[in-house]
């Protein structure tokens, strides 16, 4: 089951660049939350702060508090422990090219030292079904490389891989931006299905996508969170002039 996320006074830097300024936000559990904004506004940096991926860049720095469920992720645990609870799907599909489809899905467990075959088989099947990929790949699970699938299938494979570790939160950083429209709509359907079980945070530059899948939407601009509200409010009655300008296409 998903858990909520509470962010207080979050600041982040890349080298000298101050990419996030004083972010305060509460993301509810078991729902989809969309983050929109022009490129370079800090929305990707923000999600990368939610599972401590931000700090894999040596020049990166973070200050502030992020609570996932009741865990203060910057004080209570190591980065790897957080990332096992908070899964991530990236902008471009990135399956492990040397691994079979099966091993790709099982990788989060296997690479962390879990080797019970029976449970792994069960988890792989379940995750691929959740990602709506099972029927397409069930015949060559161990024969084909993850890299042999089409772009859309690869991205669903990556979603299955993230789901296999049974995360509480699923972060998606523009998961459909590299895909064709048909694959994009499949991914959106998936998000719609998955949000009952997981808390999903999705970064997107596509406003329709936000409107389609998310209960709540946040608008980022120049490293600041301008507005966070139920999606319908953001798109019909935004409080802030800048949000209004953005969704009506005045800039960005």
């Amino acid at each position: 089951m998903g858990v909520g996320i509470e962010v207080k006074n979050l600041n982040a830097w890349y080298g000298q660049t101050h990419t996030l300024r004083d972010i305060n936000l509460t993301i509810p559990a078991n729902s989809a939350t969309a983050l929109i904004g022009p490129s370079g506004c800090g929305k990707s940096t923000f999600v990368r702060c939610l599972n401590r991926m931000h700090e894999t860049n040596p020049s990166a720095r973070v200050e502030g508090m992020v609570k996932v469920g009741d865990i203060d992720i910057y004080n209570d645990a190591a980065p790897v422990e957080i990332r096992r609870r908070v899964g991530m799907v990236f902008q471009r599909p990135n399956p492990f090219p040397t691994m079979s489809i099966y091993d790709n899905v099982a990788s989060g467990l296997k690479l962390n030292g879990f080797h019970n075959r029976k449970v792994l088989d069960e988890v792989v099947e379940r995750s691929l079904k959740q990602a709506a990929l099972w029927n397409e790949v069930k015949d060559d699970l161990k024969k084909k490389s993850g890299a042999s699938l089409s772009g859309g299938q690869q991205q669903r494979l990556c979603i299955a891989r993230a789901l296999a570790v049974d995360p509480e939160v699923l972060l998606m950083d523009e998961p459909a931006s590299a895909l064709d429209p048909a694959s994009t709509s499949k991914i959106e359907d998936l998000i719609f299905e998955l949000k009952d079980e997981y808390s999903i945070v999705i970064v997107t530059h596509n406003m329709q996508q936000a409107a389609r899948v998310a209960e709540n939407t946040g608008f980022f601009l120049n490293g600041q969170l301008v507005e966070f509200a139920p999606t319908s409010t953001i798109f019909t009655k935004p409080h802030d002039k800048r949000t209004e300008d953005y969704i009506t296409g005045r800039f960005g």
């Binding site: 790897v80 096992r84 471009r92 990135n94 399956p95 990788s107 989060g108 690479l111 993230a162």
Partner: peptide
């Protein structure tokens, strides 16, 4: 080796040494 697949491993909570060896 593309940075993206290293990130994929990090994103699964795999420790760095294990990521280097297995990925």
């Amino acid at each position: 080796v593309p940075h993206a697949i290293r990130e994929a491993a990090y994103g699964l909570g795999v420790p760095r040494w294990r990521m280097i060896l297995s990925i």
